[in-house]
Amino acid sequence: MLRESNNTIGTTFDMTDVTGGVSGETDIPHADLLSAFAEAVYYRDGPLIGEIQTEIRQILGDAAFVDCAAVAAAFHGFVRVADATGIPYEGAGGGTDTADLRSEVGIDQFYRIAGE
């Protein structure tokens, strides 16, 4: 979905940063901040969440911050539905997540695929 949205909107993003964290060049606005927020929420790092909240609200506004929190929360649910039911990962991203993409990003090193 990330690759498709970048292709449609015309932005660039190094897909390996999905697994490693944003480090390369990208023109997704505030990608490093949003990635850092996703990481802080994943680790439930309260103080860091508070710092990043302040920054996102200052830069993008309150409504944008609410949507950042909502999306991060949504994917704490999606991953559990997918991984606890064992749905085929080959269909992810509307079928656009190819084996080549999984290899490029490092997803094929994840436990479920690496163990097959």
């Binding site: 979905m1 990330l2 498709e4 949205s5 970048n6 449609t8 909107i9 932005t11 993003f13 944003v22 997704i28 606005p29 505030h30 990608a31 949003l34 990635s35 927020f37 996703a38 949507d67 950042c68 999306v71 991060a72 949504a74 994917f75 999606f78």
Partner: peptide, 8 residues
Amino acid sequence: RNQIELIA
């Protein structure tokens, strides 16, 4: 949308 998908 690409910001949404980045967080996702």
